[in-house]
Amino acid sequence: MVGRMALVAVLAAGALGAQGVSRETASRFAGHVLVSVDREYPNKLDHTMAGPQDVRGPKDLHPAFYGCFDWHSSVHGHWMLARVLRTHPALPEAAGIRRVFDAHFAPAAVKAEVDYFRSPGHRGFERTYGWAWLLKLQAELRTWDSPEGRRWADQLQPLADAVAAELRAFLPKLTYPNRTGVHPNTAFTLSLALDYAKAAQDGPLQALLTERARAYYGRDRQGPLAWEPGGEDFISPCLEEAALMGKVLPPAEFRPWLEGFLPGLLKGAVPRPAHVSDRTDPRIVHLDGLNLSRARCLREIAAGLPPRDARRKALLVSAQAHEEAALPHVLNGNYEGDHWLATFAVRMMEAPR
Rank of each mutant, 00 (worst) to 15 (best):
R219H: 13
P204V: 12
T186S: 08
K247S: 01
P251Y: 05
V110G: 00
L194Y: 04
T143I: 08
P63S: 10
R4D: 08
A106R: 08
A207D: 15
R151P: 03
G260D: 15
W340F: 04
M80A: 14
Q201N: 15
A242K: 00
M49V: 13
A314S: 03
G20P: 14
E259T: 11
N334K: 01
F170D: 11
A139C: 10
L192F: 12
E253K: 10
A109N: 03
R219T: 14
L85K: 07
T175I: 06
D220H: 13
S146Y: 09
D195I: 08
Q201I: 04
L141E: 09
A193V: 08
L262R: 01
L239G: 00
P147L: 11
P237T: 02
W227Y: 12
L91K: 04
V33S: 06
A302E: 01
T128V: 13
A94L: 12
L171D: 04
L315Y: 00
L7D: 05
G20T: 14
H322Q: 04
A345I: 00
M349S: 09
R255I: 12
Y216L: 09
W79L: 07
R212I: 05
Y41R: 15
W133E: 04
T87K: 13
A193M: 03
A310H: 08
H286E: 04
T210L: 03
D115L: 02
A345M: 03
L225T: 09
A274L: 05
G57N: 08
A64C: 15
R99N: 12
L11A: 12
H32Y: 14
K59V: 05
F254L: 15
P107D: 07
N291R: 09
L159A: 01
L61D: 08
R311D: 10
K44S: 13
E323F: 11
D46W: 10
S293W: 02
A169N: 12
A193E: 05
G130R: 09
A213L: 05
T186A: 01
Q19E: 15
R299K: 13
V163E: 09
D145N: 15
Y129D: 00
P52M: 07
A169E: 15
H104G: 03
L265E: 04
A30L: 11
D54R: 03
A197F: 04
Y176E: 11
V163N: 00
R308E: 14
A82D: 07
A207F: 02
M49E: 15
